[in-house]
Amino acid sequence: MSIQHFRVALIPFFAAFCLPVFAHPETLVKVKDAEDQLGARVGYIELDLNSGKILESFRPEERFPMMSTFKVLLCGAVLSRVDAGQEQLGRRIHYSQNDLVEYSPVTEKHLTDGMTVRELCSAAITMSDNTAANLLLTTIGGPKELTAFLHNMGDHVTRLDRWEPELNEAIPNDERDTTMPAAMATTLRKLLTGELLTLASRQQLIDWMEADKVAGPLLRSALPAGWFIADKSGAGERGSRGIIAALGPDGKPSRIVVIYTTGSQATMDERNRQIAEIGASLIKHW
């Protein structure tokens, strides 16, 4: 067993022997301040990774656009098919120029040779490549099948209805392509620590998230040296922004954090800054 596999296998073990965790309302004060600064709703939840206990939450059962955070769930569904012998990570998928959609920095470079399922998941999570996500959605049967996968996990809230990039439209009061912070946090925890996926697939999923290259201005910008984070960000229309993450000190994750916002007129930089400040408060009061 590799060191990384050992780390993920012992996530519940280490967490069980940690000192009790206590909620700190100071972080919620910052979440509410972010709402004021952005002029928009902000949803927040913080779960203990081992027990699933909610440590703090704000608007945990209000719907927010998922945006690209759905790509972690998508690759979880792909990995479940791999575990069941219905898919192979090494299978190569070929596609054409007509398949390319807006923001496809990886797939646009491989029109000639195609990409493997493993490479597509890596591109979808680490670079948020939209064509990679659409190609992977095709392998599982489309958005409705991802929703069905989530329902089978016990998540009857999260739903995907459309493809990239239309799913980022974020129309107010439109339930399409949305989740709730509580539902997303619980589902992410199941994917990373539950028995739904094999140990190898859980490790692969967290490795992809740990290698995320496009979430630097968010929670990662607030992390002290030595902290662990595996995350996936999302951005959408109407001032929408979000991030889902597993993080913790001492090089291992111990909490799940989900943050979503929508309806702001603020710039992307300002949305990023507010999420980073929430992260800084979380870490300060850990």
Rank of each mutant, 00 (worst) to 15 (best):
R118D: 12
G90K: 09
G85S: 06
L38T: 10
A235F: 13
A235H: 12
M67T: 12
Q203Y: 02
L199D: 07
H110R: 13
P253R: 10
S68T: 00
L73A: 11
C121P: 00
S233K: 01
Q88F: 13
M180L: 04
V78Q: 15
D99N: 02
G279T: 06
P172V: 08
K144N: 08
R255C: 10
E210H: 15
A215H: 15
E87T: 08
S264K: 09
I229P: 00
A148W: 11
T187G: 14
L137M: 10
G85L: 08
L223Y: 03
A34W: 04
V42A: 03
L223N: 12
S128K: 00
E277Q: 11
G141M: 05
L136H: 01
V78N: 15
L120G: 04
I206A: 11
D33W: 02
W208C: 09
E56W: 02
G226P: 06
E102M: 03
R271K: 09
T187M: 14
W286D: 02
L79Y: 11
I275R: 00
L38I: 04
I256K: 00
G43E: 00
P224Y: 04
D33N: 02
P25M: 14
E270H: 02
D155Q: 04
V117L: 13
L79N: 11
I244W: 00
S122K: 07
A266T: 03
G154T: 07
G248V: 01
A170D: 02
H110C: 03
M268P: 12
T27G: 15
V78K: 12
D113L: 03
D207I: 13
I171Y: 15
S201A: 14
A276H: 12
D231S: 13
V106G: 15
E46D: 15
N134T: 10
A280V: 14
I140K: 11
G43T: 02
Y44A: 03
L196C: 14
D99H: 07
P143C: 07
I206Q: 10
T267S: 08
Q265S: 06
G251R: 11
T107C: 15
E56D: 10
T131G: 03
A123E: 08
H24C: 05
V42Q: 01
K252Y: 14
P253D: 06
T262H: 07
A280T: 15
A170E: 02
R91M: 07
H24A: 07
L136E: 01
A34N: 06
L197K: 14
I243W: 14
A123I: 15
A230S: 09
A280C: 11
S68L: 00
I229H: 07
N168G: 11
E87A: 15
A225C: 04
T267R: 04
L191I: 02
T116M: 12
A183S: 08
R159H: 08
G154N: 12
S96R: 07
D177K: 00
L199C: 12
C121G: 09
L167D: 13
G226V: 06
Y103K: 02
E270Q: 01
L49R: 08
T69G: 12
L111K: 02
G242C: 12
T179R: 00
I244H: 01
R238A: 09
E175W: 11
L100F: 02
W286H: 08
S254N: 11
G251I: 14
S104L: 01
N272K: 13
Q265N: 06
S96D: 13
L135F: 05
V82N: 13
E195W: 03
V82R: 09
H94M: 03
G114S: 04
T261W: 04
I278A: 14
F149G: 06
R176I: 02
A183W: 06
W227Q: 01
S68I: 01
L219C: 08
I278C: 12
E26M: 15
S240Y: 11
P143D: 12
S80E: 15
T193M: 08
W163T: 07
T198K: 06
D250E: 03
L47G: 13
I140R: 07
R91D: 08
F70A: 09
S254I: 05
A225N: 03
G114V: 04
S254V: 05
N152R: 07
T131V: 11
P165C: 06
L28F: 05
K213I: 09
M184S: 03
L199W: 09
H94E: 05
P60V: 14
R41G: 07
L223C: 02
I125A: 02
D99F: 02
A148E: 08
K284G: 05
T131I: 03
P65G: 07
E237G: 11
R159T: 12
M209R: 00
G43Q: 01
L137K: 02
W227L: 01
I283L: 02
K144Y: 03
D212P: 11
T262I: 07
L197V: 02
L111R: 08
G154M: 15
R176F: 14
M67V: 12
G279I: 06
N50D: 11
V257I: 13
L219M: 12
L137H: 05
T112Y: 14
G114T: 03
P165A: 09
T158D: 01
K32D: 13
I45L: 09
M67R: 01
V117C: 09
Q204F: 05
M268N: 14
L111E: 09
S68E: 00
G242K: 00
R59H: 15
S51M: 10
Y260E: 01
S281F: 03
D83N: 06
P172E: 12
N98H: 07
L150E: 14
A246E: 05
E166M: 15
H285K: 10
H24Q: 08
N134E: 13
G234M: 14
M115A: 05
S80I: 14
V214N: 07
T138C: 12
R273A: 07
L135Y: 03
I283F: 02
V29Q: 10
Q265P: 08
R41I: 11
H110Q: 14
I243E: 15
P65E: 08
A40V: 11
L111T: 03
Q97L: 09
D155G: 01
L49Y: 11
W227D: 01
S233L: 10
D83R: 04
R118K: 04
F58H: 02
M66Y: 08
R238N: 03
E277H: 06
A124K: 00
K284E: 06
M180E: 03
P253G: 06
Q97F: 11
A222L: 09
M66D: 00
L120K: 01
F149D: 09
N152L: 12
E237A: 08
D113S: 07
I206L: 13
L192R: 01
M67C: 05
A148T: 08
D99S: 04
L120D: 01
V157C: 03
A215I: 03
A182K: 03
V258W: 00
T107H: 01
A222V: 11
A124D: 01
G141C: 08
L188E: 01
M115V: 06
P172W: 11
T116P: 12
Q86A: 04
K53H: 12
P224N: 15
E62S: 03
E108K: 15
N134M: 03
D129S: 01
T193S: 06
L38S: 13
M66G: 12
T187S: 15
L38Q: 13
P60W: 09
S128F: 00
R59M: 13
R189V: 05
K71N: 00
W208P: 01
N168W: 12
T193Q: 08
S240Q: 13
T267G: 05
F228V: 15
G242E: 01
F64D: 00
L219Q: 10
R241A: 14
I125G: 01
L197E: 07
I93A: 15
K252C: 08
L205M: 03
E270N: 03
Q204H: 07
L136P: 00
D48F: 05
T186C: 11
G239N: 02
G234V: 00
G154V: 06
A182W: 02
P181L: 04
D231N: 03
A182D: 06
L219W: 09
D36G: 10
I229D: 01
L150G: 08
T261L: 09
S104G: 12
R162H: 12
G43R: 00
A280G: 14
H110G: 13
E164P: 00
N168V: 10
L196W: 07
V214Q: 07
